[in-house]
Design a protein around this nucleic acid. Sequence first.
DNA 1: ACACAAAGTAAACTTAGAGTTTACTTTACT
DNA 2: AGTAAAGTAAACTCTAAGTTTACTTTGTGT
Lengths: 216, 216
Amino acid sequence: MGSIDRKNKIKEIRKNDIIDAAQEVIFSKGYNQASMDEISKQAEFSKRTVYSYFSSKEEIYFEIMVRGYNLLNEQIQNIFNEIPQKTALEKIKQMGLVIYKFSTQYPNYFEAIMSYENKEEDFDIQLSNSSRDNCYNLGEILFSYLKTTLEEGVKEGLIRDDIDVVNTSVYIWSSTIGLFDVLIKKKKYLKNYHSRDTDTLLKNGLDMIIYSIKKR
Amino acid sequence: MGSIDRKNKIKEIRKNDIIDAAQEVIFSKGYNQASMDEISKQAEFSKRTVYSYFSSKEEIYFEIMVRGYNLLNEQIQNIFNEIPQKTALEKIKQMGLVIYKFSTQYPNYFEAIMSYENKEEDFDIQLSNSSRDNCYNLGEILFSYLKTTLEEGVKEGLIRDDIDVVNTSVYIWSSTIGLFDVLIKKKKYLKNYHSRDTDTLLKNGLDMIIYSIKKR
DNA sequence: ACACAAAGTAAACTTAGAGTTTACTTTACT
DNA sequence: AGTAAAGTAAACTCTAAGTTTACTTTGTGT
């Protein structure tokens, strides 16, 4: 291994250490409350050094989001590797449930993902094209699972054959995101004003979505 | 009219003028880029005076959101006042279309509404209970239209009678919000990566939602 | 083994904007 | 005309992101 490779490797490790530290601080006090001074201190680097690895606080948060996305994609992938294989409809419902489980198990990662999912396409930070593509690809993995499963379901005869799989994937993805967002953020409101708990509403919502694509 | 009443009236007018000015600045440069110095200048008051009417920038933005909500509610209300009356299913689809039209016609108000809809229940600013209730009430108006219309549809025999109207209202509301959010924010991405335009995806999404509640 | 480049450091600095204080002036009611 | 309420300009505090400076440490090539 050449010395340049070794250096790059060390750089990657340090970058990771900084993300670790930032994650600890940001997850414990929230993005806005976490200062770069504190993140640097936690990372045991000077602020200047942190800024030599990342150009802004937002860029670091973006990396945290990528970690979250990878973790989520892994869990989704498991559904498709399971034996015995489930039907397309079961898999789609399972995806919803896995995302929900993820959101309760890793609320901070989920928040990071959501804050980017809910962001304008024109990111505040000017992402390099490769970062942007990389970010899109993370979402594309989920999207393509959805698309493939829908196609599979149509073939099986369980899913309506009058749907367009791309349109329907967008519909399922966006309405599921909306459902989670509202259920998580308005949890107390829904309990106090409409006496419904998150679990009931989530299961009902996913059932409605499934019902809308099911063949009869 | 007593002098106290007159004073309160003047105060209300000034408050409104300040909201007008803030709206102009915020809508033209965005919330973060709009400074309180500039808002005060636009309002032709000193910054100190602005702060005697509102306790923070966020509180002013909150008032802008309330304006937007009232405008939206008005347009929704029109659907229900129309003659001849439509079926429940048509009304629900119409609500979706009206919200979409609103989002294109008043994108800045829509953004203000969305930024509060997407906010944690625990607002950053400590809203007084009356402001918080007031804010909830705005959403409640829409919610109750939805609920009432669903009940009506069940009676008419057009909507599934095995649904719970509250659960279903939450599902419709949250998935519609999610749909708009994704379609507006990821417009370019959906066009470039999946060659689908907003209108098609919106109409398809609303149809799927309608399909999920329709009796057959 | 040592020169020198790369990487790191602490601490002071810049910048920007929200919100506050001060010391003063204008307005309008009684 | 006197007084209280409402307004003003401008300087100030505070916080936090990001930068600069002047210096030190580390590690690699010859």
